[in-house]
Design a protein around this nucleic acid. Structure first.
Lengths: 219, 219
DNA sequence: GATTCAAAAATATGATCAAAATATTAGGCC
DNA sequence: GGCCTAATATTTTGATCATATTTTTGAATC
């Protein structure tokens, strides 16, 4: 009694997407259609469609010679992401603050608890997962589809690099502002909530920038 | 001696993209794979891949029942686009101003001339085309790939609605700030250039908003 | 070091199967 | 008897696969 609701290409898309967001695929790593066909035990057509979609979202990069890789950000790209995230994400919070319900706030608290647990266990994938869930549970409360899509694209671009930060310096290198954010939501404090998310973004992106400036790999 | 460089799915993608940007496809219109296969005389696989890509970019909308349409914006989506465009595009100009070369500026002037010609002829498709070219010739001078991609996505979303404005009120309803922009570029006046583009965006999006508020179509 | 050739990977086609939308028909009700 | 509703049939469209073709890479040779 299999639940055949969502099409194959959609399911494949979601699987690869998580591999990127939560750090299974690392920056610079080549991604081949054939490889994924074998790894995921899927047909070529669904895999191809999933890759086109992810490439369009900026999660993957199409080199000219029809080869696909996980993007490796350079300094100026990090600056672009920095700016774009600070433009979009606090706006989502601003819209969300008056609309979010109390059940959603307690759901956020639950996610944050799991996140803290992952930190204390040094569970990097768990950290990435719950950090993502926290932010997007909040952003979804805004009910702003276009801005949400933009934010998701930005996270797909930043995800693999964040993973690099965590494997290098551990989750403790990334203090978050989730506690402050939740308290601000409870009191409907717009300024405080937006400010907290802004700080959260800055802290994360600063770390990514650091890794890039110091940890220069190849020429 | 055919120049077979770019793959079919890429060519198809570009063709459909232009159909959306320059108003061949109207908001609400259903887009079928089979239909495009016949219209464009192509195989199903390239068309499918192109549609996945365009859907990911927000140029098309995937309904739940695996049907695809050209998105019809509602008021809150127009507000989101308004905000996002004002966040991203002036920033691109800001980065472009010190980097743009004089040949590129004169190229902009050439595009603007063709645009004015299209306006005087009442050529709507020409208007959309050269207006797009003007903005993105400028934005590309910034050399900021990520922000550029975001801006392109926003234009793909706004394109079909702009077309509706033009067919309803004519190109004269959309005064542009291109002249002011070019002069600001020549004098490297950052404030003025960003302000001009900001005004340009406001004028266009205000019109789109008007059409939506007054020209309510169905229930 | 450049060139040629073979293997591997990506691309594209068309066919097949499944799902959805539309058209059609039959039955029940006023 | 006409008309609305609901079940069914048809047709259109989407999803996936197997296969053929093209392109690129990388190795071997000159």
């Amino acid at each position: 009694m299999e639940q055949r609701k969502i099409p194959e290409h959609e399911a494949i898309y979601l699987r690869i997407r998580e591999m990127i967001l939560f750090g299974v695929l690392v920056p610079g790593q080549p991604v081949t259609i054939q490889g994924l066909v074998e790894t995921l035990d899927a047909g070529t057509t669904p895999v191809r469609e999933a890759l086109r979609r992810l490439t369009a979202e900026g999660a993957l990069e199409a080199k000219g010679n029809r080869r696909i890789t996980v993007p490796q950000l350079n300094i100026s790209q990090v600056e672009e992401l920095y700016f774009a995230r600070l433009s979009i994400e606090p706006k989502l919070v601003q819209i969300a603050v008056p609309r979010i319900g109390s059940e959603e706030i307690s759901s956020l608290r639950g996610i944050d608890n799991k996140l803290n647990e992952a930190i204390s266990l040094g569970d990097i994938e768990g950290y990435l997962k719950y950090n993502y869930r926290f932010h997007f549970a909040l952003y979804e409360a805004a009910g702003a589809g276009i801005l949400l899509t933009l934010a998701q694209s930005l996270w797909l671009r930043a995800g693999p690099s964040l993973r690099v930060v965590l494997t290098r310096y551990g989750a403790s290198a990334l203090p978050d502002q989730h506690d402050v954010t939740i308290r601000a939501l409870e009191t409907r404090d717009l300024q405080k909530a937006c400010g907290a998310i802004e700080t959260d973004i800055r802290q994360g992106m600063d770390q990514v920038r650091q890794v890039l400036v110091f940890g220069e790999t190849s020429s």
